[in-house]
Structure formats: C-alpha cells, structure tokens
C-alpha cells in the first residue's frame, strides 16, 4: 500500500463570516488520509466534522492553511472519479430515476448512455437495489435513498470516499445497511473511507477514529471504543 497521502491538510482552518459575526468552524488542522484507510470522524453536532470533510473533498476552500491531494493531483481532478462524497441529507436529483442518478457521474465523464446504465445497474445490483432502478427519488425511503447515494458514490471507482453522517437521518437497521454498503465497497475496491458520525457503534467498525470538538481535531485515537 502506498504511503503517499490521498489528502493532506496542513494548518487548514475554516471561518465563516467576518468581524464580530465570524464563526470558527475548524481550527488550524493537520491530518492526512492514506490509501485504504478506514477512518471514523467522531464528534458532536457542530464540532466541525462536515467542514473538515468538505475541505478534504475539495468542496470548500480553507480560509487558512492548505489542503492537498498528493496521490491524486489538483482539485480539478478530484471529481467526478477519484473522490466521492455521500452527503448527509437527500442528495439524489429529483427528476432522475435511481439508475439515472447512479449513472450521472459516468455521464459527466462522457461515458455513453448505454454503458453508463449497464454500470449503474451493476452497481445497484451489488447493493441489492436492482428493484429500485426505475423509481424516482420521491418514491424511495430515506434508507433506500442513502444506499442509492452510496451506489452513486462508488460507481466512479473512487480512491477516497467521504461520507458525511450517512446514517444521521436513518434508523439503526437502515443505518447499518448503509455502513455495510460503504465498508464492503471500500473492502472490494481498496478505496480509503472517511465517515463522519456521532454514533459510537458505527465508529467501532472502523480502523481509526478521529475526534473533533469545537473545531479542534484529535487524530491520536486508534480505536473509537478505546
């Protein structure tokens, strides 16, 4: 396994607003995610988990410090493809069917419609979601929608999967299904996986656990239960 980090934050910090109304979401942070890592990012709501994930995924810019992707390249190369993100809330495009939603990242890299659909169906099959292929997002339950979002995240063969509280709006049963799907996918593809959660039982299934509080990150905890 390569030791070149997929993503590396050096003193990266994020402040929203300015002056008296400025809110520090993330204190200056140093961290790195290596290929194949399985990391849970623990912390209460508002501790800065999502902000850190967004910076690592190149979805947002740090106000101080830097974020780099040494094993991938520039930020423009992150998506669609090497880095996939699973969002906390509903993130499927309402006018597209499940299969079309899953195939979207492929269409964005000019894969033909027929091939994109075949690969989308294959991805859905791996997650046991074939029956949902032609349904619209509004016709899915929350758990189904989140698993479809996982399928969509995986279809571009990412090397880094970032999931922002993917079980936050689900019951335990459906949450487990989603986490299973993520872990199996990471296992199968060798992708690194960082999952933000405040659920200890979810975090226990990961190799490493980072904790956050008030925008400060602690990466020294090996196992979440320890």
């Amino acid at each position: 396994m390569s030791t070149v980090p997929l993503v590396r934050c050096a003193g990266a910090a994020r402040t929203y607003g300015s002056g008296a109304t400025a809110t520090v979401a993330l204190q200056p942070t140093d961290c790195a995610v290596l290929p194949g890592a399985r990391t849970a990012l623990m912390g209460p709501s508002g501790s800065g988990k999502s902000t850190l994930l967004h910076l690592m995924g190149g979805l947002d810019d740090p106000t101080r410090g830097t974020v780099e992707w040494p094993a991938i390249g520039t930020r423009a190369a992150l998506r669609p493809g090497p880095v996939a993100t699973v969002f906390q809330g509903p993130s499927l495009l309402p006018p597209l069917t499940v299969a079309e939603n899953v195939a979207l990242p492929l269409a964005l890299v000019d894969v033909g419609p027929a091939e994109a659909r075949d690969r989308a169906l294959a991805a859905l099959e791996q997650l046991g979601l074939t029956a949902l292929a032609d349904k619209l997002p509004d016709e899915l339950s929350g758990g189904q929608a989140q698993r479809v979002a996982v399928a969509r995240a995986l279809i571009g063969a990412p090397v880094l999967i970032l999931a922002d509280e993917p079980t936050g709006q689900l019951d335990r049963f459906h949450g487990t299904l989603v986490v299973d799907a993520l872990l199996h996918a990471a296992e199968r593809t060798g992708a690194a996986l960082v999952v933000a959660t405040h659920d200890e039982t979810v975090a226990d299934r990961f190799d490493a656990c980072w904790r956050m509080r008030d925008g400060l990150l602690s990466t020294e905890v090996a196992r979440c239960s320890s």
Partner: peptide
C-alpha cells in the same frame, strides 16, 4: 439540483 450535480463533479 444543480448544486448537487456540481458537488458530484459537473
């Protein structure tokens, strides 16, 4: 919708 598509890499 467009923001999600952009977040997916569009």
């Amino acid at each position: 919708t467009f923001a999600i598509a952009a977040a997916l890499g569009a």
